[in-house]
Design a binder for these strands. Structure first.
Lengths: 331, 331
DNA sequence: CCACTCAATGTTTACGTAAACATAACACGA
DNA sequence: TCGTGTTATGTTTACGTAAACATTGAGTGG
């Protein structure tokens, strides 16, 4: 900076003013400084800058894994929103979702250069007692409850699941089977609970829920079981990947989709429209979730105070070819 | 730090020594300092630390999008490898893959707190003249050529594609059709070139390559065309997602897989084993790619000098149910 | 014409850390 | 007993920036 100042014949402070776009600098001086900057290839040192400003202009994102499609889309949206606001995004992968690991990640984050943390994970894993958010680091949570302690942004799991079940019932199915996500997942709980509640509200029989782990493979295993159920004409899979597995199992067992069995998913991943048959599913607006997460984080950073409460992002039904009315002959 | 020092009755320098795990501190003193740290909730300020050390312990990753599955897995692997080495990963999404955008991203990275950059993209987009890597920032590139200018780590696209084609020829197919990735992609070029070369080497006819854009939807469109070709018994799709689309089209047109047409993909994404039928594909070792990328970056940071050359990560064939011998009657 | 205001720019300082150097205390062999 | 080396710890300093305050000079109203 001093070199630039010398070359432009000004003081370091003026360089700083130009570099930050502050007012109070003649157009002529500004031009001279900018020229000197380019000539010397000057780039502000972000470490010194962060130290002086007391903030890093960076948001940390904690995730377990990027293998579930939903998390990836959320992350992508976060990164884009943050970039737009001039914030960088630092990734902090947590290998195993044990409390110890999470705690370790958080303490590492404490040393890291972040002003806020967005956690895409289950809050119960960061049990309040063990989680000591570093001072001056704000927290936002996705895919969880605990809106009473943190600012939470999430897809409207309940509404989405209800829409899915309603869609199938409206088509004339007597009831709807469910392939649920892992028990630990709040999203999975929400979808399963809403599935059950919707069936009960409609006075339908509630079949036993099958449990998967979000992977297509687990959906396949569930699908093999479902194929054994002659009275199963409609399946609601808690995500698209498991729906993919379910459909594979049904195909292999000779059940036609949607002739014999209708299948609906959740997420609307890009590939869903190319499944065979194209999957009817509940579309999640990951972009908006990401954007809201970043907005909440920035608001907390700027006001310097925490936030509570849950913001729900609505979903909508995307009807494709994997659902239809139950065939007359069966069931 | 001073507060901690005062509480522990030592100097700031001793606190620094403890904080960095340096030798030359009595066990007793160390314990006293650690206790003071916990009591005061002390966390080293990474900005000051980075400034003093002149390095950020952070690697920046530039990507266009996280929507292609391959990039995501690479990113995931990078994040994990980096974390293991005590390095953080900062994401820098580039909205549109134009040169201007990329240049902008790089200049932003210049101001950012990174010691090295890993670019998951096509190098030709960061045309040498416009790309001015900030001094002291090392570059590693994935998914590209230009090993003469940068350190490049990539999957062995050529070897993988050859394996794919050989597999189909060995099953008895007369030739193999190809659904290529986008022209700009080096990976797509490599796979297409190897496909052509392998067919030529075997003295087979080389059909016109169909071009997709990595998405399942584009694979579907290509698949519709392939279904019109009565002599098409084997298809090599440049990635699994396009293979998914191809298979959907074939199903819809009543062609059986692998009875009428064999389909092979590339990537081995987690869902591939749950496609219908489970997809034979070329497995990429994303973990190793990520690890090698990080290793190269760290080596360059530590030695302070650039690196050139390309490192190839081998692939292997995963045979599932989407490929088989051509049926006697057809073709 | 002078006191005053305001805009442009310069000077000083502090942010939290760790390297480099300085000091103190102690052990050991001659 | 006294150097001499070694280990533990303290002191000083600089890293690059931007806030706070200081200075300069030009324009304005009385």
């Amino acid at each position: 900076m001093i070199d630039v100042a010398r070359l432009a014949g000004v003081s370091g402070q003026t360089v700083s003013r130009v570099s930050n776009g502050f007012p109070g600098v003649t157009e002529e001086t500004r031009a001279r400084v900018l020229e000197a900057m380019t000539e010397l290839g000057y780039r502000p040192n972000s470490a010194a800058r962060a130290m002086r400003r007391g903030e890093f202009r960076t948001i940390g994102v904690v995730t377990f894994t990027l293998s579930t499609t939903g998390n990836v889309h959320t992350l992508d949206a976060i990164a884009r929103s943050a970039a737009q606001e001039g914030y960088a995004v630092t990734l902090l992968p947590v290998a195993v979702p044990t409390q110890d690991e999470v705690r370790g990640a958080f303490s590492r984050l404490g040393e890291l250069a972040v002003d806020a943390i967005i956690a895409i994970m289950e809050v119960h894993l960061l049990d309040a007692s063990s989680l000591v958010p570093p001072p001056n680091v704000r927290i936002v949570v996705a895919d969880s409850h605990a809106g009473d302690r943190y600012s939470v942004v999430d897809t409207d799991q309940v509404g989405g699941a209800r829409t899915a079940v309603d869609h199938l019932l409206a088509l004339g199915h007597r009831t709807v089977w469910h392939v649920a996500g892992p028990e630990e997942s709040f999203a999975a709980q929400g979808r399963e609970g809403a599935w059950r509640a919707t069936l009960e509200a409609a006075g339908r029989e509630v079949p036993t829920a099958l449990r998967g782990d979000w992977t297509a493979e687990s959906g396949y295993r569930a699908g093999l079981l479902l194929a054994e159920q002659p009275d199963c004409t409609a399946v609601f899979a808690a995500n698209d990947q498991m729906a993919l597995g379910v459909m594979r199992a049904l195909h292999e067992k000779g059940r036609s989709i949607p002739g014999d069995v209708s299948v609906i998913g959740f997420d609307d991943i890009p590939d869903a429209s190319s499944f065979f048959p194209p999957l009817t599913t509940i579309h999640q607006d990951f972009d908006q979730v990401g954007q809201l997460l970043v907005e909440s984080a920035l608001r907390q950073i700027r006001t310097g105070s925490g936030e509570q409460g849950t913001t729900l992002v609505p979903t909508h039904l995307v009807v494709r070819e994997s659902t239809g009315a139950p065939s007359a002959g069966r069931c």
